[in-house]
Structure formats: structure tokens, C-alpha cells
Nucleic acid binder design. Structure first.
Lengths: 335, 335
DNA sequence: TATAATATTTGAAACAATTTAACAGTGTTA
DNA sequence: TAACACTGTTAAATTGTTTCAAATATTATA
């Protein structure tokens, strides 16, 4: 009974256990694991078999202390319920995993305090870098400026690597398309103009429209499916041939209201969105919109982050990804 | 020049730096941080000020080695693009955060290998427990059975704590409602019957229907918006007054097909779903369905997990959460 | 066969934190 | 004044891993 080789040692199996089991030193086991140093073939085999037998798993916390690297990154998401973010999170996680990094996730639910707290948590856990989708205007990294690699998604910020979509071009593509379909009277429900991405798509759109069509009315609305009363009352006027929404959420909100008002989309009025969220081809009518390359965005963010992890003093880099027009059934052709 | 007190030490600030800066020993600093031991008030103040001055952040990796606790858990999600999961992930993360745990996320994209790999990654990082939304039939924890706390969401499994919704009752609620609205000829597009949650909702539904209505046809379909050809051909027959879908995705897929066939929903045929995904009140017509308490599910999962982290040998526990009928506009009343 | 050159293997020192036992001071009490 | 209980502090041990330098074993060369 005293002789129980097969019993797993209590607690976690460590290098030391493996060393004892295979009759070599701890250092040798480490060399085998990392394929460093020079270890004889038979010893290698012994060690490997002991590892399997005992079910040894490296302790990354200990590694982290020794090497200074945790092989983890963090991602800060404003709200997973917003259909814009799941795909982003997915692609960040997947790209990080491909590079051997595990991902901490924090969903701030749009709270600036949660953002700041989250950053602190990440740093305590020693993340090597952070992908940040900002929700508030606050820069929650001020305290750590230049200390930890950060990549911002969706917003150009002076002190950070950034990746976002070519919103300006997206606006232009929409304008071009609507003009080509004969639309000349336009209603605008823009997103909040304090948000850079909303401002850029509006700017691009207006530039391309120029004097070729008329903006009959314009209201600002949060990036939400709920429309403000002003927007609703503009919709009632029926004095435009197309409604250009700041994003798909707003567009879907507008369609819902129009349905309630028994105004047919797109026969009586057309609607376009922006983002191509997964819902946009499920709603009725399927939405004509601008596709952002969400998963590219995530991948690219991880690229930038790895680059900066590699060299904290690398020059600042901004990546702008191409967008494309997705034509579905929410625009009526007036030609 | 040699005297540069204000220079941040290179690399990360450690307890040792703080100790030197405030002129006490490392242990004293630790006592101040953890509020253990007995430390004089003035010393406490000195130490606190040094901490702020240097911007010290505890190193959780080091803590983990010493204490054996990482204060992290992992969550395994099959696919964030599936609208069922983001809210779940959100609530798990939020509940975990409330209990002082950080959350590692892995999105397996429905791959069994990714699942197994993910578990290994989690264990390497020393997570104290794992919330598992299984995608495959495989039990990726076999190797670690009884070693690490695991809570399964959405599927009763013999060896794990589990939390899921009362699918059986959901099925009954739907049946009851449809009967009360006068429906007597039913088409069923069930989810995969190998999946427990799909089987249970079907069972509950059929039990409640009993002999009060007739199941004209039934096909099995993956939990996806894409319908199999058999399902499509059944839809064409127009021999039922309501289509009962295995979940909202299937229901939305059916609505799309019916739209294409110019069959009006709900005037010509009614449709009901299951899950109440965020899309379900955006599609046209808004879907009558069964609401699962997604965020409760997440919270409860974390509860179970913490319980088991506290005591690995606790008795197995299953939590079944209540569901409720959400009546919208996709069912026509035949009374 | 002895020696040099190379190939393996090992012990011990880090790494950043927590914990323990021990120690020097003070103050109280017999 | 010795004995005792406190308080505040410290040095040393511990955790799992990597890595350096030293020690040992093996092979090749003279």
C-alpha cells in the first residue's frame, strides 16, 4: 500500500514531479519541454513518457514570472449585444489564438468606469497588449501611456495604433449609388456627430452628393434601433425618396416605424444603412448597406498589437480597411 | 544627475521597489496591500504614497504561484456569431467580474478540436473553473474529469453541474397557446434530435398537443437559418395553419422562404420560434417565441461554478430556469 | 592509453509575490 | 526587576519555471 506509484500527486503536477518520475533533473525536463539545451534521445523519451503518464501541464503563471511574458492579451468591448461586436471579438480571439495568445474579454456595457477598471484588471493579470473598442470619449489608458501596447478599433486617436474602416469612402459609395438610381430628395438620420466614424460617413456622403441632389432634412440619432421623436416626425412627412441612416440599427429602426405608418419600403421610400450587421439581410426588406470587413478589422488589430508588443517604440500606425456596397432590396430604382 | 528618485524603475514596478521607496521591508508592503498583519498608521501612509508615486500594480502571476489561485475562469463558446451566445457571454463575464474573476474567452467556431485545445490552454493558464457551452457531442473534459470545476450550459450531462432552460415547459407553452388560438394542423421543423435541448422542446410540445391537433408533417433541420430542401418542399404544400420551428433561426429561415413563395405570414400561415434571440422582434413579422432567460443562465452558471471552485467535491447540481411565452405578431388567430 | 573536444546533465540562482517564524522594542503586571 | 504580552518589523522559505555556469559522461584524436 505504501508503494503507490500510479497515484497522481496531490495538487497540480509540476516539473519537479516529472523530474522525479523520469529520474532526471528539473532543468533537463525544462529543456525537453522547450526544446532548448541538448538532451539525449533516450532521456527525451523517458521525460516525454513521464509527462504523459503524470498528465503534466505547464504552469503559465510560473513561466510568466520567469520570462516576463504571459502570452495573453485583453479585449475591451462596449457591448456584446450590439451586433457589431461579436464578430469582431471572434476574429480577435481567433487571430490571437493563432499566434499563441489567450484572450481576456471584458464587456464594459458602455460604462467608462468599467472600462478603467477593466484596464486595471488586465494589467494586474499581465496582459501583453490590449485591443480597445472605445465606448466612451474618455481615454482610459492615460495612466499607462506608453507603458502597454494598445490598439484602438474604430476610432482614430492621436497616440495609438488604430484600425478602422474607410467610412468616408462608404459614404461616397452610398451617394454614388443613390444618385445612379435616380434619387434626388434625401432625408438624413445621422449617427452622433461627436463620434468620428459617424462624422466621416456623413462627410463622405455629402461630398459625393454635392449639388446633384437635395438634403431635405437631417436629424441626429444615437446608434440605436430606437428613433428620436424628431426623426419619427420627419419620417411622417414623406417628402423624400430615400432615407440615409447612420448605421444599420438606425435603418432598421426607421423601417419599423415606416411599417407602422403603413409606408411601404422600398416602394414609397427607400432606406439605406451602414455596417452590414448580420441582421441586415434578415429584415424585410433586406437592407442595402455598406459592408465593413469586421473580421479583417479584428485580424488587423491583432497584427498591429503583435507588432507593438514586439517593439513598444515602433512608429504609430493606422490601418484603414476598404468597405464595399452591398445592394439588397431596400432601394427603389427611380430610373 | 546620479540622484534620480523620480525615474520609474525599468520594467514593471514590484513590491521590492515599493519597499525600497518607502524604506520598509517587502513583507510590510505586502501587509499593507492585503490588510493583514499589523502595520502602524504612519508606515501604512508612507507605503500607500509610495505605491501611488511609483504606479505599482500587483502581479497576479506571482500571486498565483504562491497562493495557487489565479482568479480567472474560462468560457467556451461555440460561435459568437450565433445570436444566442453574446448575451450569455456577457452575463457570464459580468457575474464573474462581480466576484473578482477575470474571464478568458474561447470561441471554438463549432470545432471539437478547438474545444479540446481551448481546454488545454485554459488549464495551462490555471483557470479556476470553466463555463462550457458544448458545441460537439464530445466530452472535451474527459482527461481532466474531477480535476477542474466545470459548469455546462444548455445540456444536461451526467458528470457535470448544469444549467439550462425549461425546454419542456417551453414546448408546452407554445402548444397551449397555439391550441387556444385555434390551430389544428401543424408542421414541425424540429432541431437536431440528438441535441437534448431540441429533443426536450419537441417532447414537451407533442405531449401538450396530445390528440387535440394533428401533426401533418415533420422534418429535422440544423439550428440554422438555412432550411434543408425537405423543409422547403413541405412549406410549399401549404397544408398546415402553423409552422413550429425548433428555434428562432429556423423560424426566421422559414419566414424568408415563405416570403419568397409569396405566402403571407401570418395571414396564410403562422410561424413560431424558440429562444427569443435579439433579432426576433426585428424581423417581419415580429416573432412569437419562447424567451430563455439568457442572462440569468450566465449568472447562474457562474454561481454554480463558484460553488464548485469552493468545493470540488460538492454534490452535483442542476439548475433549470423558467421560460416564458412572448406573443408578437407571427401567429394568426383562427378563433 | 591518455588527452582533448564535445555532448549531456545538473545544481543553484533568479523571477515577484505571500507566509511564517523570529526578533527587537515598548508597556504592563507581579 | 523579571516575566509576560503586545506591536511593528524583518529575514528566510516557498511557489513552478528558466537559465547560467559548472560538472559529468561520451566520443574523437593523438
Amino acid at each position: 500500500m505504501a508503494h503507490n506509484k500510479n497515484n497522481k500527486p496531490p495538487g497540480r503536477v509540476t516539473l519537479r514531479h516529472v523530474a522525479k518520475e523520469s529520474g532526471v533533473s528539473v532543468a533537463t525536463v525544462s529543456y525537453v519541454l522547450n526544446d532548448t539545451g541538448s538532451v539525449g534521445d533516450k532521456v527525451k523519451e523517458q521525460v516525454r513518457s513521464a509527462i504523459n503518464r503524470l498528465g503534466y501541464t505547464p504552469n503559465l503563471s510560473a513561466q510568466a514570472i520567469r520570462t516576463g511574458r504571459t502570452k495573453t492579451i485583453g479585449i475591451i468591448i462596449p457591448d456584446l449585444k450590439n451586433p457589431f461586436f461579436p464578430e469582431l471579438a471572434q476574429s480577435v480571439e481567433s487571430a490571437a489564438r493563432d499566434s499563441g495568445f489567450a484572450v481576456f474579454l471584458i464587456d464594459t456595457q458602455e460604462s467608462a468606469e468599467a472600462e478603467a477598471e477593466g484596464v486595471y484588471t488586465f494589467i494586474k493579470h499581465g496582459v501583453e497588449g490590449i485591443v480597445w473598442c472605445p465606448s466612451s470619449e474618455k481615454d482610459c489608458f492615460k495612466k499607462y501611456a506608453g507603458t502597454i501596447p494598445v490598439v484602438v478599433i474604430d476610432r482614430p486617436l492621436p497616440n495609438y495604433d488604430t484600425v478602422y474602416s474607410d467610412y468616408n469612402k462608404g459614404g461616397k459609395l452610398l451617394a454614388e449609388y443613390l444618385l445612379s438610381e435616380g434619387h434626388r430628395k434625401i432625408g438624413l438620420i445621422s449617427g452622433p456627430q461627436t463620434i468620428e466614424s459617424a462624422a466621416q460617413r456623413r462627410k463622405g456622403f455629402l461630398e459625393e452628393i454635392g449639388t446633384q441632389a437635395e438634403i431635405i432634412w437631417e436629424v441626429e440619432n444615437p446608434f440605436s434601433i430606437k428613433l428620436c421623436p424628431e426623426a419619427v416626425s420627419e419620417l411622417k412627412k414623406q417628402d423624400v425618396s430615400v432615407i440615409v441612416a447612420g448605421n444599420d440599427m438606425i435603418a432598421i429602426g426607421a423601417i419599423k416605424i415606416l411599417n407602422q405608418l403603413k409606408i411601404n419600403v422600398p416602394d414609397s421610400v427607400s432606406v439605406v444603412g451602414f455596417d452590414d450587421v448580420p441582421w441586415s439581410d434578415i429584415v424585410h426588406p433586406p437592407l442595402t448597406t455598406i459592408r465593413q470587413p469586421l473580421s479583417e478589422l479584428g485580424k488587423e488589430a491583432v497584427n498591429l498589437l503583435l507588432r507593438r508588443i514586439d517593439n513598444l517604440n515602433a512608429s504609430k500606425k493606422t490601418v484603414i480597411l476598404d468597405v464595399q456596397l452591398v445592394v439588397r432590396d431596400s432601394v427603389f430604382s427611380l430610373k
